[in-house]
């Protein structure tokens, strides 16, 4: 038993995958015949935007930060895309990504240069973006928002009716993340800054540059996630990504990245995002009222994170 525990401690990712398998098995036992290729395909489709948000969140949490503006940025990017679709797909895409860029730069300036606590900084920019979008929407009432076909394909399309298109985007981002975190100087620096900012300074590292780029990347990933989301729903509204704020943080924590920085990685976040997606699916299958679903979801996230904290102590 203790040996098994030691094995799990050494390879926490295995424990996560095991948990995921248990969840999937649980569904299949409770409702035989649920787990089909189509179900798996849908799970991946829905997990992708969360995992992309989680990628950005992983980047900032590795440095000991957090980004609470990701939901507003994702929503904003989606809304800007839909309302500018008339001026051409390229323009609309550029505009919505530039929202991510701008918010990222502001967050980066605040956190990296002026050393504002990430929580407060991103809370502030999140409010700013959210409010600005509300005001913006009132000027856009006349126009007819619609989602470009290419984004719809990205967010909802499936190749051969089975392989979700957004899986390719996710896979590319995941590959980049894993390579960057473990094999590049930038990745090393994210861990280093998260572990001991002062030591990095003394070692001659310009910490602010690392953090600045980090927050810009996070906001850009949030904007991309917003695009995938709006492609999936095909309707831009101003609360599109609100429900993703908690899961974006939760999938990183469940995936084993320390909120204090310096420890963790993206592979855990991937499994974390899958676990949360499957959990949602289970709760939907259970056919309980929405409030109860919400309570259960929160309680399970909390117990998972607590179990993880005890396991890795």
């Amino acid at each position: 038993m203790s040996q098994a525990l030691a094995l799990v401690r050494g390879h926490t990712i295995l424990a996560l995958i095991l948990l995921l398998a248990v969840f999937v098995l649980g569904i299949e036992i409770a409702r035989p015949g649920t787990v089909t290729p189509l179900w798996i395909s849908n799970a991946l489709l829905f997990a992708a935007p969360l995992a992309i948000l989680g990628a950005g969140q992983t980047l900032v949490m590795l440095t000991g930060g957090i980004d609470l503006s990701v939901a507003s940025v994702a929503t904003g990017a989606a809304y800007i895309l839909a309302t500018n679709a008339a001026s051409g797909d390229g323009t609309a895409l550029a505009l919505s990504l530039s929202l991510g860029l701008i918010v990222g730069i502001v967050n980066g300036l605040g956190v990296a240069v002026l050393r504002v606590q990430p929580l407060v900084m991103t809370l502030g920019t999140g409010l700013m973006v959210g409010g600005a979008m509300t005001v913006y929407s009132q000027y856009m009432l006349a126009s007819q928002p619609h989602v470009p076909a290419i984004i719809q394909t990205l967010g909802a399309g499936k190749i051969l009716g089975l392989i979700p298109v957004d899986l390719f985007l996710w896979a590319a981002i995941a590959a980049l993340m894993l390579f960057a975190l473990h094999r590049t100087g930038f990745g090393r620096l994210l861990y280093a800054v998260g572990d001991n900012r002062e030591a990095c300074h003394l070692a001659g590292i310009r910490v602010w540059r690392v953090l600045f780029v980090d927050y810009v990347l996070c906001a850009l990933l949030a904007a991309i996630a917003g695009l995938v989301l709006v492609g999936g729903t095909n309707a831009a509204d101003l609360s599109l990504a609100d429900v993703y704020l908690l899961p974006s943080v939760a999938c990183v924590i469940i995936g084993g990245t320390s909120i204090f920085g310096g420890r963790g990685g993206y592979s855990g976040t991937i499994v974390g995002a899958l676990i949360l997606t499957v959990l949602t699916s289970i709760l939907t299958l259970l056919d309980v009222p929405e409030p109860v679903k919400q309570i259960l979801y929160g309680a399970i996230i909390l117990s998972l994170a607590a179990a993880y904290a005890r396991l890795t102590e």
Partner: peptide, 21 residues
Amino acid sequence: SRIPDIVVTLTTGFIWGGVAL
């Protein structure tokens, strides 16, 4: 739980929200 405050209260916020509904 030994989880940081911010994560716990983000989650309990979700739970209390369900209770309110």
